[in-house]
């Protein structure tokens, strides 16, 4: 039996809205540690890894680990029916082929439930080792989203280079070229305006902008985004889900052949 009650149900909707265009179907794995989701996009160039800890839920019961295969588009449709302040409760039987979502308004004067059919999805799981990245950039999520949007109008490939001065995003295309440099800023009055760069050694990597732009759909989740880079490794783009967990995106670099 699975029963999980999330007071801030809107977080679930923000997570699904952030990933549903990248991955269409995915297995949500539930265990005593919480909810996890790992899936690659169809081109196997990018990957999402989400974790919501069990202690994020007001009530969490998971008698035995289970994997719930879902269409993320259908899940998004169901979550769209929840009020932004609703409490969301998920229920599923161990051998069930459906999962039920219950939405309760804060004043408990409106309760609705939606039953979603589960699917059999055979997903390939990648082992992602903990990496001691050469460069870690924490910047305002809105700033990252704006850079992706602006540069996408100029080119489709971006070189991200992190040095001690800051992190530079460079692109070029038929229109011309563009550079955006974001400098370390640890003195901004508001914490959410700060940019923090932890550099072990300079690194520059090349990526397809359309994936980085897609990751920015997670902007409503958090005030900051963290980019972690190491030579010749995928970049990790991470949004914290408040203090409940994280939504991570990995993107394989483009390397001179």
């Amino acid at each position: 039996m699975l029963e999980a009650r999330l007071v801030q149900g809107s977080m679930l909707r923000k997570v699904v809205d952030a990933v549903k265009d990248l991955v269409s179907d995915a297995n949500i794995d539930v265990s005593s540690s919480g909810f996890s989701l790992q899936a690659m996009d169809t081109s196997h160039v990018s990957l999402i890894a989400m974790h919501l800890r069990a202690d994020a839920f007001e009530h969490f019961r998971c008698d035995r680990p289970m994997s719930m295969g879902m269409s993320l588009a259908n899940l998004a449709k169901v979550l769209k029916c929840a009020g932004s302040d609703d409490i969301v409760t998920l229920k599923a039987n161990d051998d069930g082929d459906t999962v039920t979502f219950m939405f309760e308004s804060p004043k408990e004067d409106r309760v609705s439930d939606f039953e979603l059919k589960l699917m059999d999805i055979d997903s390939e799981h990648l082992g992602i080792p903990d990496t001691d990245y050469c460069a870690t950039v924490t910047m305002p999520a809105g700033e990252y989203a704006r850079i992706c949007k602006d540069l996408s109008s100029i080119g489709d490939t971006v070189v991200i280079s992190a040095t001690k001065d800051g992190v530079k995003f460079t692109t070029s295309g038929d229109v011309g070229t563009a550079n955006v440099t974001v400098r370390q800023n640890t003195t901004a009055d508001k914490k959410e305006d700060q940019t923090i760069i932890d550099l072990k050694e300079p690194v520059a990597l090349t990526f397809a902008l359309r994936y980085l732009t897609s990751f920015a759909k997670a902007t409503p989740l958090a005030t900051h985004v963290t980019l972690s880079m190491t030579r010749e490794l995928p970049v990790m783009v991470e949004y914290a889900i408040q203090d409940m967990g994280h939504l991570r995106f990995y993107l394989a670099p483009k390397i001179e052949d």
């Binding site: 196997h44 082992g127 397809a208 001179e256 052949d257």
Partner: peptide, 14 residues
């Protein structure tokens, strides 16, 4: 022009 890699070149299936 740089070639797009795939994740399996960096991470192993488990």
């Amino acid at each position: 022009t740089p070639m797009q890699n795939h994740l399996e070149e960096f991470y192993s299936l488990c």
